[in-house]
Write a protein that binds this DNA or RNA. Structure first.
Length: 518
RNA sequence: GGCGGGGUAGCUCAGGGGUUAGAGCAGUGGAAUCAUAAUCCAUGUGUCGGCAGUUCAAAUCUGCCCUCCGCUACCA
């Protein structure tokens, strides 16, 4: 069984700035990448930007910039976001990089070489609105009193034709359906799979894969009048990132096919229909899974510029802190579904789970050790049944957590961890070490040791979600860097007594509500 | 219109033919005081969207209805 793991986010279109949706996808993917690394996998995590196309060219022009300069500017924002969010990507790809031009041209040529009939020159025609600079399907148009078609916005349209290359997607209907059937886990969640299957079952039409009416793209091999159109270019980034077209290189052999493409639900068709078809045609292996996440609504409303409720990731970090934001998103957004961001709810969740439950557990434990054990982790005496019960619950929980994580059900993973944290807090109250201090100091030491060891476990388990805080706690306990892996959550690697700790300070400070702070 | 998925406690949701329908958060009462006014314990008379049916038994299956949402191809 392979211990390599290749995971990607979708590449972000640089037409706009990063918003909460981008941040969510990056964090979700990052959590999976970190989880796998902590579980002993050799992980490659790729993210990046999609920079070609008419829209970017136009936006650049509007801003009085050359396309490349405009892309440099926006791509930098996305790259900065990965830093801001503590995303552990191993590479950041931009579709304007040389390596990607090479790969994109190569896949085009591979398709032509392997299946010459799959690419053919024809013409793209349709109703074009000059005002909207876009094509419309007839069903979108309305017939005016003069008998001509108009866009919903009332703009006139004209029938235009443009030469372009087509990809023979129609030839892949049955192959794709068979692929979905043979690989039931390819599209997750199931509801999205149903949509795709029913879409494909209706039959596929060929799609245009080049354009001549703008230049901002990868030139088509042997026909420089054309640039490669959108998705063939964009999707190829996933193999560019592992060294394609050099399919003999270590990187490619190690990581392709990808284990998971994490994407938004709006672009499943491109990833679940087009991309597999392109790869089949080019005679390359297909990715193992496409995971489509939902969107984040804000106070129950769709995030949109016109409503004016678009949230920049930085807003949340300023309000809650980075780890808190990461935790919130992973905890509140159910697997593959839309999530809702509500400020009140966020305060509640973060305070309850992070400040009160885990943060306070760490604080109360370390404070007692600091004050009553000469600031050193005590050496325990024999464990009682209660002690073992708590520790074993932590040592034994991982297989279940892993099952949830493998399905990207991180809200369930967190639920599982926090259940045990609650048990640890209950254990503190039952054992009442503050009473033992007077009656039975030796027993108190054991209790505090058990708690410190429990905290070591929690800190490791929590690393994918709240890496900074997790490491901070592990630093306190002087846990060596190379022991911060899931396999170390076991009795075999339990804390040694005698480790000196510093005066504790809160890991997750309690958030004050705005009203109260003002 | 067609296909698909929902409508369960104040909120977010889990469950899914079988004893008194669950969790977290919020609320209420109590305990404790080590700790970040944190923690612990106790506490839910909910028409499980509506109506009808199948069944010894339905939140769980079937039909119809109401309602919300997604998909129904070449902007990405």
């Amino acid at each position: 069984m392979s211990k390599n793991f290749y995971i990607t986010t979708a590449i972000s279109y640089v037409n706009g700035s990063p918003h909460l949706g981008h941040a969510y996808e990056a964090i979700l993917t990052d959590v999976m990448a970190r989880f796998k690394r902590l579980d002993g996998f050799n992980v490659k995590f790729l993210t990046g930007t999609d920079e070609h196309g008419q829209k970017v060219a136009k936006t650049a022009e509007t801003n009085g910039m050359e396309p490349k300069a405009f892309c440099d500017k926006t791509a930098a924002e996305f790259e900065a976001m990965t830093e801001t969010l503590n995303i552990s990507n191993d590479d950041f790809i931009r579709t304007t990089q040389d390596r990607h031009y090479t790969a994109s041209k190569a896949i085009w040529s591979a398709i032509k070489d392997n299946n010459p009939d799959d690419i053919y020159l024809s013409k793209y025609d349709g109703w074009y609105s000059v005002r909207d600079e876009a094509y419309f399907t007839e069903s979108e148009l309305e017939k005016g009193e003069d008998g001509n078609f108009y866009t919903p916005g009332g703009a006139p349209v004209e029938w235009v034709e443009e030469p372009c290359y087509f990809f023979r997607l129609s030839a892949y209907t049955d192959k794709l359906l068979k692929f979905y059937e043979d690989n039931p886990g390819f599209i997750v969640p199931q509801s999205r799979k149903n949509e795709i299957v029913s879409f494909v079952k209706d039959g596929l039409q060929d799609i245009s894969i080049s354009r001549t009416n703008f230049k901002w793209g990868v030139p088509v091999p042997d026909d420089p009048d054309h640039v490669m159109y959108v998705w063939l270019d964009a999707l190829t980034n996933y193999i560019t990132g592992v060294g394609y077209p050099n399919t003999d290189c270590d990187e490619y052999k190690t990581f392709w096919p990808a284990d998971i493409h994490v994407i938004g639900k709006d672009i499943i068709r491109f990833h679940c229909v087009y991309w597999p078809a392109f790869l089949m045609s080019a005679n390359l292996e297909l990715p193992k899974q496409v995971f489509a996440h939902g969107f984040i609504n804000v106070e129950g409303q769709k995030m949109s510029k016109s409503v004016g409720n678009v949230i920049a990731p930085q807003n949340l970090i300023d309000m809650f802190g980075l780890d808190q934001t990461r935790y919130l998103l992973m905890r509140e957004v159910p697997h593959g579904q839309d999530g809702n961001f509500s400020e009140d709810h966020a305060f509640q969740r973060i305070n309850s789970d992070l400040a009160n439950s885990l943060g306070n557990l760490v604080q109360r434990t370390l404070s007692m050790i600091y004050k009553n054990c000469d600031a050193a982790i005590p050496n325990p005496n024999d464990f009682t049944g209660d002690d073992k019960k708590l520790l074993n619950e932590i040592y034994d929980c991982f297989p279940t957590l892993r099952k949830h994580a493998d399905k990207m059900e991180f809200h369930r993973v967190l639920e599982g961890i926090w259940k045990i944290i609650a048990h640890a807090n209950a254990y503190v109250d039952e054992q009442a070490p503050w009473a033992l201090r007077k009656n039975d100091p030796e027993r108190m030491k054991t209790v505090l040791y058990v708690l410190a060891e429990a905290i070591r476990g929690f800190a490791i388990l929590v690393l994918p979600y709240t890496p900074e805080a997790g490491h901070k706690i592990l630093d306190r306990l002087s846990v060596p860097e190379d022991e911060r892996l899931f396999e170390y959550v076991s009795a075999d690697h339990a804390l040694s007594g005698g480790i000196i700790i510093e005066k504790p300070e809160g890991v997750f400070p309690r958030l004050e509500m705005k009203e109260e702070a003002a």
